[in-house]
């Protein structure tokens, strides 16, 4: 039941995120979407993930988003959707509805019985979410954990390469 409340909120605000023409209100819709995700995670019993979702996404990343929007496009007019052609809109609608239909049809026939090794009882036994997650990150999932740091380094260098523009003739 709680799941459906959060799910409906998430979907509604995801729609306003897309359809609002003002970037700032879109950003705030995204905050609500992220918060309801946190709610869903909490309902699922993943309290650590829920807290991290709020701190990292709703807190840090969204502040950056809004900061950038304020800095860059304070004087840029609202987004203009009238340039999108009718055929694009119609095909997008058809494509979206088809995907939705396929997913609903698939999930109706699917049974979600299979669970992994990390069941709820097992987690409580081994000392709660935080402990299990941190132990897993440094044991079983050490490779993806370390690869993520390489990924971030590559992303930083890529961002510098694109963003560092030439100023005038002299450097």
């Amino acid at each position: 039941m709680t799941f459906y409340i959060f799910a409906v909120i998430a979907v509604v605000f995801a729609l306003t995120l897309i359809f609002k023409k003002n970037p700032v209100s879109s950003a705030f819709s995204l905050i609500v979407v992220f918060l309801s995700f946190a709610g869903i995670y909490a309902v699922l019993g993943a309290h650590l993930i829920a807290a991290m979702q709020i701190i990292v996404y709703t807190g840090a990343i969204m502040v950056l988003f809004i900061f950038v929007i304020m800095l860059l496009s304070a004087d840029v007019p609202d987004l203009d959707y009238s340039r999108t052609s009718k055929t694009t809109k119609i095909t997008a609608l058809i494509g979206g509805l088809t995907l939705w239909g396929i997913l609903t049809w698939m999930f109706k026939g699917a049974e979600l019985t299979k669970t992994g090794t990390h069941t709820e009882e097992w987690i409580t036994q081994s000392g709660g979410n935080t402990q299990v997650l941190s132990e897993l990150l440094f044991s079983e999932y050490i490779l993806p954990f370390e690869l993520t740091s390489i990924l971030l380094l590559a992303a930083i260098i890529g961002a510098v390469a694109i963003a560092k523009r030439k100023r005038g003739k002299k450097t």
């Binding site: 690869l147 990924l151 590559a154 260098i157 961002a159």
Partner: peptide, 26 residues
């Protein structure tokens, strides 16, 4: 041999190439 590490390495590769594609800044 794992979908998580596959995804992360895919992103390492792609992110570098995205920046290379946009390398002509001006």
């Amino acid at each position: 041999a794992d979908l998580i590490s596959m995804f992360i390495s895919l992103e390492i590769m792609s992110l570098s190439v995205y920046s290379l594609v946009a390398f002509r800044r001006n």
